[in-house]
Amino acid sequence: KTVEVNGVKYDFDNPEQAREMAERIAKSLGLQVRLEGDTFKIE
């Protein structure tokens, strides 16, 4: 899975870890996480 923030992509081998990281980043920035294919987009 991939986490994308402001056009910057971070790859994770563990999908659960990617989801947790995406949620943590989104919460700290006051944004939403949206799953698009294999990418968690933070917008």
Rank of each mutant, 00 (worst) to 15 (best):
I25H: 02
M21V: 13
A22Q: 00
I25K: 00
R24M: 13
K27F: 10
F40D: 01
V5W: 15
P15Q: 09
E16K: 09
R19V: 05
N6I: 06
V5C: 14
G37N: 09
F12M: 04
D38H: 08
R19K: 11
L31M: 13
I42D: 01
E4C: 15
F12N: 00
D38I: 04
D13N: 09
R24I: 11
N14I: 07
Y10N: 02
D11S: 15
S28F: 14
A26D: 01
S28R: 14
Q32L: 12
V8R: 10
V5N: 02
V8I: 13
E43M: 11
E23V: 09
K27G: 09
T39L: 08
V3Y: 03
K9D: 03
Q17S: 11
I42V: 12
E23I: 12
D38L: 05
L29R: 03
E16N: 09
T2P: 02
R19S: 06
V3N: 00
D11P: 11
I42L: 12
L31H: 06
E43Y: 14
E23S: 06
I25F: 07
F40L: 10
G37A: 06
F12I: 05
A26S: 06
Q17H: 12
K27M: 13
R19W: 12
E23T: 08
G37R: 05
G30V: 02
A26V: 02
P15H: 13
V33L: 11
E20T: 08
E36Y: 09
A22G: 01
K1I: 13
E43H: 09
V5E: 01
A22F: 05
T2M: 09
A26I: 02
A26F: 03
R19Q: 08
G7N: 05
K9F: 09
L31W: 12
D11E: 15
A26N: 02
A26Y: 02
E23A: 07
S28Q: 15
T39S: 07
D13Q: 11
K1R: 13
E36G: 00
V33P: 04
L35K: 06
E4P: 01
K41N: 03
S28D: 13
R34T: 11
K1N: 10
P15Y: 14
E43S: 12
K41P: 01
I25Q: 03
V33T: 04
G7E: 03
M21C: 15
V33R: 00
F40V: 02
L35M: 08
I42E: 02
R24G: 06
I25Y: 06
E4D: 08
A22V: 05
N14G: 06
G37Q: 06
S28K: 14
K9E: 05
E4F: 11
Q17E: 15
D11Q: 15
E20Y: 09
M21N: 06
A22C: 06
A22K: 00
T2G: 05
D11F: 15
I42N: 01
E20A: 11
A18H: 00
V33C: 15
K9P: 05
E23F: 13
Q32K: 14
F40H: 03
E4V: 13
L31E: 05
L29I: 04
Q32M: 12
E20V: 09
Y10S: 03
A22W: 04
K41M: 09
F12S: 02
V8S: 07
T39D: 02
R19H: 07
R24N: 10
R34V: 13
V8L: 10
R24P: 00
F12V: 05
A18D: 00
G7L: 03
Q17T: 12
E43V: 14
K41W: 08
V5L: 11
R34P: 03
V3C: 11
T2V: 12
I25S: 02
Y10L: 08
